[in-house]
């Protein structure tokens, strides 16, 4: 029944999915943290930029963002992100698009976390003579992150599934392979089930492990 799978590189496609997920997760965690820092910071211009970025990017369909990276950044502006191979360019553009999109959600989750940290924590840190970046990085953000492991897990799971949009610009990940298999084989339900199962294999452990981590690192008050 599963014989037809031998003709396809299913593991390779899912490996690409994993790479897209992990690299975009790291990128969006960093960029999202920077955005959150801007949004809670004392500089009005940065606060304005952060708010505008989040509201624009969060409300734009991911497909539009991913297509823009390819049609706009690459084909119109000629940005190739340091690669010459077409596949590698698209892979990197997809990571860029996914990072830009997911960072808006990371930022908002983190901002909610910052609001759970009592204002006295930052006051005590300032009273010791720590600078604003130090207050944020040493006292506020470490506590904020611990309180939003759950919401960030949701973002990560959504990101894992959102990587399928990269198929729109030809990145050879699981969804693109699925499309190819559906075109070539008369096994629609089976193929869908296999791909869906693949994603469950990625996201279910993610949820379980991070759920455990969230409990482990929670700050007791």
């Amino acid at each position: 029944m599963f014989d037809f799978l031998d003709h396809y590189d299913l593991l390779g496609a899912f490996w690409t999915t994993v790479q897209l997920t992990v690299l975009s997760a790291i990128g969006s965690l960093i960029w999202g943290t920077v955005l959150a820092a801007m949004r809670v910071g004392p500089v009005p211009v940065m606060r304005g930029f952060g708010a505008a970025y989040v509201n624009i990017v969060r409300n734009t369909p991911l497909t539009v963002i991913i297509l823009f990276t390819s049609l706009g950044l690459n084909q119109t502006l000629g940005i190739s992100l340091g690669a010459t191979n077409f596949d590698i360019i698209n892979f990197r553009l997809a990571i860029l698009g996914l990072t830009a999109y997911t960072a808006a959600f990371v930022c908002e989750a983190l901002r909610a976390g910052i609001n759970t940290v009592p204002v006295g924590q930052a006051e005590a840190a300032r009273a010791l003579g720590l600078s604003f970046p130090q207050v944020l990085s040493l006292v506020v953000l470490p506590q904020a992150f611990r309180s939003v492991v759950g919401p960030l897990t949701n973002v990560l799971i959504a990101l894992t599934k959102n990587t399928t949009v990269a198929a729109a610009i030809g990145v050879a990940e699981a969804a693109l392979l699925m499309k190819k298999m559906i075109e070539n084989e008369a096994q629609l339900l089976l193929i869908s089930a296999v791909i869906a199962f693949g994603f469950v294999c990625l996201t279910l452990p993610t949820g379980l492990i991070l759920g455990w981590v969230g409990k482990k690192v929670a700050v007791k008050r």
């Binding site: 009592p118 006295g120 924590q121 006051e123 005590a124 840190a125 300032r126 009273a127 010791l128 003579g129 720590l130 600078s131 006292v139 470490p142 506590q143 611990r146 700050v219 007791k220 008050r221």
Partner: peptide
Amino acid sequence: GKELARLRADVGMVFQSFNLFAH
């Protein structure tokens, strides 16, 4: 700014709600 931070380091403060860093 930096100047203020430097000065705050010379002024110790104890709060009603302790405000020890919980993490």
